[in-house]
Amino acid sequence: NRMYLVCPMNTSPYVDPQKSGHSIWEDFSMSFTPAVREVVEFAKRIPGFQDLSQHDQVSLLKAGTFEVLVVRFVSLFDVKERTVTFLSGKKYSVEALRSMGAGDLLNSMFDFSEKLLALNLSEEEMSLFTAVVLVSADRSGIENVNSVEALQETLIRALRSLVTKNHPNEATIFTKLLLKLPDLRSLNNMHSEQLLAFKVHP
């Protein structure tokens, strides 16, 4: 009998209690599908991504889409105002979302957003970092690990070169960025747990 969906990939956290679980799920899917399609379009533009096998392209996207969305939508989490902006553009306070059942994942999303935004990355740096997030050879189900690893290394080298060029006096930025990768994995795991709970008990 869950009444709220606190994911900002919805237009609103409020769920119509008259709707069936299936219908709620359909609405949620309609809501986040355009964002997922944008991730796929982004992936296609990563040089070398489309040279990977179809299987590995799908595996990387399946495993990494949530993490890419977290990076792309980092600005939805307003650390100063303590609000989250949903797809409709409406903002909800942390307290309101907490009262709707949001827990540790929400806190962790704010922490991540705050730290990533503090690095003051350019659009180009964010884009390259996002590519690094997506192309990770240690995702489950990768068939041709060597190909993905080679592309991953190329992207990491390009990111290091760009960050070093843009921030010559801030030697730790590249390291801090790489340390965001395990943070994203952790968020991904927390999110997956919530999804499983939702699907089993919609």
């Binding site: 799908v58 996207l61 399946k62």
Partner: peptide, 27 residues
């Protein structure tokens, strides 16, 4: 429901979005 990506129908969305580029590609 052991696979969250399948759970969300994510794989289907991803495959459809990739399809335009994949029609002529071997596995």
């Amino acid at each position: 429901f052991s696979d969250p990506a399948s759970n969300l129908g994510l794989e289907d969305i991803i495959r459809k979005a990739l399809m335009g580029n994949m029609e002529d590609r071997p596995e």
